[in-house]
């Protein structure tokens, strides 16, 4: 026995199929429109003042960690307690951390004068810290036997380098305090 057709003519079936297809297309267009509207809201980075300050504090804390890691590494290498490959890897990793901190600050759009000042102070402190950590890497390379004796930017002694790093850490702390951090 044949099952009775659920619809009348073939033309009816075609019409219904077209209606279903156009309904599906309309649904897809709506989903796309909602997705575009949602993501379009994200294209302009807009933060509340508190969020911007927290972002500055996070970036400075990250930079502070990088400087402290470098100080520890330099102290250990100076005392012959760490191998030069490990010291080099440790300092190189901190250069990358500082790049991330710089990126976090440079891509921030401060919503008011206060967070703008915090961001600017943070940028200066992180730039200074980056310079000292890069110098520390050159010092590590010289300790490893690299031919860098004539390079003027390389600190001559570990204590000289430690003093520069300590100053950079203090500057970061000052900037962090300005951003309401510890």
């Amino acid at each position: 026995m044949r099952t009775p057709a659920r619809s009348g003519t073939i033309a009816d079936v075609g019409r219904r199929a077209r209606i279903t297809r156009s309904g599906a297309v309309l649904g897809h267009v709506l989903v796309l429109a909602v997705a575009l509207a949602t993501t379009a809201g994200c294209t302009v980075s807009r933060q509340e003042p508190g969020q911007a300050t927290a972002a500055v504090a996070d970036a400075l804390a990250q930079a502070g960690s990088a400087v402290e890691t470098t100080r520890l590494t330099v102290r250990l290498l100076d005392a012959d307690r760490v191998t030069t490959p490990v010291a080099d890897a440790a300092v190189l990793d901190q250069v990358r951390v500082l790049e991330e901190s710089t990126s976090a600050l440079t891509t921030l759009v401060p919503p008011d004068d206060v967070s703008s000042a915090q961001r600017d102070a943070g940028l200066v402190a992180v730039a200074d810290a980056t310079r000292e950590v890069v110098a520390a890497r050159a010092w590590v390379a010289r300790e490893a036997g690299g031919d860098l004796s004539e390079a003027g930017a390389v600190p001559l002694t570990a204590s000289e380098l430690q003093a520069d790093l300590a100053r950079a850490a203090d500057d970061l702390d000052t900037a962090l305090a300005l951003a309401g951090g510890a």
Partner: peptide, 14 residues
């Protein structure tokens, strides 16, 4: 105590 947050293997062995 030094305020170092670990983000790499090189820090773990220090």
């Amino acid at each position: 105590p030094a305020g170092i947050e670990v983000s790499s293997l090189s820090q773990i062995v220090l």
